[in-house]
Design a protein around this nucleic acid. Structure first.
Lengths: 317, 317
DNA sequence: ATGAAAGCGCTAACAT
DNA sequence: ATGTTAGCGCTTTCAT
């Protein structure tokens, strides 16, 4: 039977449709996908440590962007979380014909996903982590080098010369990049790097809190601190307040990402705005392009952030 | 061929498995599901207005809870967003054999999903909105009546007698419930309800901001305000500060839900903690139970919240 | 124990 | 234009 609706009279189409509905007929997507060898579904894959959206505004924003794109393109989304991080189990969940491609959010440096990618022909794009080029994965992320430079130079311009940095997690390449970017800027401006002022190990509020505490335990203190993201900055902010220090009077803090909430803390965070939503959207777009053209694509796309000056920075006393 | 692994020697199993891997064989979940008539996948369905996780900590927390449960039970998750809110299109996305059941997050009062539910035999549970009993849907939510009573009585105990309320969205049943709960408490304590002090229309920061602005425009002001959730409370807080009022000195604010961020604003929010993660987990559990036993279940499960006193409330001056 | 065949619900390519 | 059939990749049943 021809299924081109235009070939039949509108009444017929309507009658068929209504009878179909009365009978409770629902086309089965599985069967359709099975024969089409195409599911119109993409997977969003997350590390186990990241799969807490309430604590992960980055992943939430990426997901929002991805969803927006999928809605436009009429694609569906499967959310995959690496339960036990059993590589085999994980791969089976992705490479089982249930999706046409995958977006991996912030794969860790030693993620089993990267190994998997060598054995599959599924299109895949990485968001939030740059993956070594030889893997051939297309990567989308914020431009850490540019953004952290913006943040650091902002403090420099205010007159700060004693600068600290609160790091992200050790096993996340982006965290390494951001720290390196910070060090590079100091080098450019011939500002000495004080190792004791570079602390922290995580992208969460708590890590920021503890990192800042470690800085505050040093014999002398920096007057300005760059945080590896806004959550870290919020933690650092709280640590300062708890330590009896005023922000920005005693110490200036710059965040990174401009998460929602950055403007609602007190003082509102000076930070670098990154279009994470746009990053997610772009990732989905490139993935779908790969799926529909049938051509794998590698490369890196960096989104440049912009400075948002709010209340957590001021000239040093 | 028998596929019971125990019947074969471990070496054989190992050999077969490794050969299978070398050949790049991946079992196809679609084909398997097609014959099994069971996908081991559940859908999480969201209203178009809600599908912005960055702005919706409630949905994020539910999703976290659902994911946790699914990981334990080895179920998969499909995220469905109602693009154009075209009922037909939406139902097709859910009732197309691609999932064994669905969790609907905060369906609006007039959601097309409710109508759909009359025509399907798919198990379904509603989270965050109580659906009329005759629909036969199992509903999970926080106990608004209990929680809002807690919040209101907290202000009452501090000595407040002039109380306001910042409402949620009009088309969300939970918002109606919360407002009614507030009114009921005032009635119980024979406190007059000042209609001008009941403002707002939304669960977002902005709505809280504007709602509070409307209250602050009244000829006389309340000394304490209950917000319909924490986002609204944050908006109300900002409105007070912008209006030159101190919190909690001039006006006390109580939130609802204890979203992450409630403790990080300044002053940290006094609020009612709701185990939204647990709500999501429970919803998934009940859904899977329905799927596996093949019996639809209706009913309501309310999670009682608890008071968390922080810095946004104090006795009236 | 082992292998062949039927069929899940659909689409595409075929024959009428 | 209409109807028939083969087959997507798997599981289950049935025959050997």
């Amino acid at each position: 039977m021809s299924n081109k609706l235009e070939l039949h009279s509108p009444e017929t189409v309507q009658r068929v449709l209504s009878v179909a509905q009365q009978l409770g007929y629902r086309p089965n997507r599985l069967a359709r996908s099975l024969v089409a060898k195409c599911t119109h579904t993409i997977g969003v894959v997350m590390e186990p440590t990241h799969t807490v959206f309430t604590r992960n505004p980055y992943a939430s924003a990426v997901l929002d962007g991805v969803l927006e794109c999928l809605m436009e393109r009429h694609y569906h989304l499967k959310l995959v979380t690496m339960a036990e991080a059993q590589p085999r189990t994980l791969w089976m969940q992705i490479d089982d014909g249930s999706m046409d491609g995958a977006i991996v959010i912030c794969p860790l440096d030693d993620s089993p996903l990267l190994e998997w990618y060598a054995h599959t022909s599924l299109p895949c794009v990485s968001v939030g982590s740059l993956v070594p080029a030889e893997r051939g994965i297309y990567c989308v992320d914020s431009d850490s080098e540019h953004g952290i430079r913006l943040a650091t130079e902002h403090l420099l311009e205010l007159g700060h010369r004693k600068l600290g940095f609160v790091r992200g997690p050790e096993n996340q390449f982006s965290a390494y990049q951001r720290e390196q970017a910070f060090r590079a800027v100091l080098k450019t401006y011939e500002i000495p790097v004080v190792e004791g002022w570079i602390q922290g190990d995580g992208y969460e509020i708590e890590s920021g809190y503890h990192g800042m505490q470690a800085i505050l335990a040093q014999p002398s203190l920096p007057t300005g601190v760059v945080a590896s993201n806004d959550l870290v900055a919020m933690g650092a902010l709280r640590a300062c307040l708890d330590h009896g220090l005023s922000v920005p009077e005693d110490v200036s803090i710059v965040g990174y990402d401009d998460f929602p909430g950055a403007s609602v803390v007190n003082p509102p965070l000076t930070t670098v705005r990154n279009d994470i939503h746009g990053i997610g959207h772009h990732a989905a777009e490139v993935l779908i392009e790969q799926i529909e053209t049938g051509t794998l694509r590698s490369g890196v796309r960096l989104f440049a952030g912009e400075m948002v000056v709010r209340g957590s920075t001021a000239p040093p006393k």
